[in-house]
Design a protein around this nucleic acid. Structure first.
Lengths: 106, 106
DNA sequence: TTCTTATTTGGCAATATAACCAAATAGTAA
DNA sequence: TTACTATTTGGTTATATTGCCAAATAAGAA
């Protein structure tokens, strides 16, 4: 593994890692529908506001969402629209995984 | 968040999480080129064989790679070909992230 | 300036992850 | 059956992540 390959892998993994949490995946799905503020997302998720804020921070640092101030409220939007397209592809993997589990118990 | 939404997010996150490590991203890239056995990947990565084996296990459990036995050797192949397509999209995010950092220091 | 609302950050504890090493397992050759 | 090679699994330790709570910060209204 060359230094370039390591940096490339590390950089990519950092972004994928940001998506590797249920709450953040939910946020991405909701932002794909339309932009939301922290309090809206917090209400839908049902966790502490600080927890939601931290997840948004992770996504923002990864460059997957962007924010914009509107008074005291911060509105978050999806910056990388191909995620849900990729998720569509992931559904096939999920389906195959479930089928494999089903076959295992049959 | 309904129960369905939670399960959906959790399932998707589990797969994205499997991609959230530099070594596993490297493996995905190499398997995209052509199938490899553990010893080949271990040589390229430079980590312990057991470490590489565990990473492969994570990817296999996520349904992203498949394996096939050939004598004592196990050959791993990419099962989800759209990953590298998504990585292509991620390159834009990475570029934007770097640009943002550059702007910050200028 | 003070108060209110929204958001972010720090601290802490619990949980999860990842690396190496050694041992165990699996398949093939002798 | 034994020996060899490749791979997987268990144990351990260190690090990273995540949730909640409390405190701090930011923006606007009064």
């Amino acid at each position: 593994m060359t230094k370039e390959e390591e940096i490339r892998s590390r950089t990519r993994a950092a972004i994928l890692k940001a998506l590797g949490h249920p709450t953040r995946m939910f946020i991405i799905e909701k932002l794909h529908e339309k932009p939301h503020c922290v309090c809206e997302l917090t209400e839908m998720i049902g966790a502490d506001t600080s927890t939601v804020s931290k997840h948004l921070s992770v996504l923002k640092n990864a460059g997957l969402v962007v924010d914009s101030k509107e008074g005291t409220m911060v509105r978050y939007s999806l910056a990388c629209t191909c995620i849900m397209e990729f998720i569509g592809c992931i559904e096939n993997v999920i389906r195959n995984n479930l089928q494999r589990q089903l076959d295992y118990f049959t």
